[in-house]
């Protein structure tokens, strides 16, 4: 079983005095796995440790049976798309893939064909001679995925890949990832909850360095059932309502406002509704007491 999974046991990471990752215990299996959490929760730290660009302070990590400290062997089987993906700006897309391909330990067999194949997978064949600095955000991310896959890794680690992308790009990217996940373990970290809902079966939530949820997306949503309400109110009442409830969404239409909020106690004059993953996420944080009032302050 361990030969096909990533096993993380009691993983700790300290930055000086700051305890960035607190006793993480996690098993990740084949398919798309979503790591959810706020900015600063520790997602990137965890990603970096798995990608071997950061040293852990304590704990044990085994990737497909290989201990993390065998850095070179791990790098042969993992592909990494960092959050701040960038490359020599004047390099062309094709040259970048060739260069990174060699560095990734890509096989010499069918070297050129494999690069061409990847270019078409990520839909960048037409841009093969374009310089990296001229690429749009979405294209860069696609290039990022391509370079992570060059050596056909069994593990793909993708850190916040959709941040800053427009909706169309984001969807395209997610689909790409799902395609790729069929034969691999793909770990996707994000603070955009919608990404998880669309692509992942299992997810974990990191909050202030701690793993506070580890299970299926389905269960996360189930957990919030019965706790999400909608309410129709007057626009002028919004300020009051904000103080009263933990609002996850406001829609205004003329003088009316439709607010969506979570509550662990029954609210008589509001309507129960089916939670979406955002509600579920917020509710889970709220339950765990790590909730900060999201309603926002005075306008």
């Amino acid at each position: 079983m361990t030969e096909n999974t990533i096993e993380i046991k009691n993983l700790n990471k300290f930055y000086g005095k700051k305890h960035a990752l607190k006793n993480i215990n996690l098993t990740i299996e084949k398919g798309m796995f979503g790591l959810l959490g706020r900015n600063g929760a520790g997602k990137t730290t965890l990603m970096r440790i798995l990608a071997t660009t950061l040293q852990k302070s304590d704990g044990e990590v085994k990737i497909l049976g290989t201990d993390l400290k065998n850095t070179r062997n791990i790098r042969k089987i993992t592909g990494y798309l960092p959050q701040e993906f960038s490359m020599y700006p004047s390099m062309s897309v094709y040259d970048a893939l060739e260069y990174l391909g060699i560095l990734s330990g890509m096989s010499g067999k069918n070297f050129r064909e494999n690069i061409d194949k990847l270019l078409s997978t990520v839909n960048l064949q037409e841009k093969r001679n374009v310089k990296i600095r001229s690429l749009s955000g979405g294209m860069k991310r696609r290039l990022g995925i391509a370079q992570a896959l060059l050596h056909n890794p069994k593990i793909l680690i993708v850190d916040e890949p959709t941040a800053g992308l427009d909706p169309e790009e984001r969807i395209r990217f997610r689909n790409l990832l799902s395609e790729v996940a069929s034969e691999r373990i793909v770990i996707l970290s994000t603070h955009i909850v919608g990404d998880i809902e669309a692509t992942c079966e299992k997810t974990a939530i990191l909050n202030a360095g701690e793993l506070i949820y580890n299970g299926t997306v389905e269960n996360l949503i189930k957990n919030a059932e019965g706790n999400v309400y909608t309410l129709e109110a007057d626009r002028s009442e919004i300020i009051v309502l904000k103080k009263k409830y933990n609002i996850t969404g406001i829609q205004t239409s003329g003088n009316k406002a439709f607010i969506r909020f979570i509550s662990d106690t029954e609210v008589k004059n509001a309507k129960l509704c089916t939670p979406n993953i955002e509600d579920a996420y917020m509710f889970y944080l709220f339950e765990k007491g790590s909730f900060v009032n999201i309603s926002g302050g005075e306008i």
Binding site: P82, F85, L103, S104
Partner: peptide, 22 residues
């Protein structure tokens, strides 16, 4: 200098070939 940029540095460092080779 080419790896002075943090993003590029992280990417290149995560690769199988050691930086010192390049």
């Amino acid at each position: 200098f080419p790896e002075n940029d943090a993003g590029t540095d992280e990417l290149i460092t995560s690769k199988y070939f050691e930086n010192s080779f390049v």
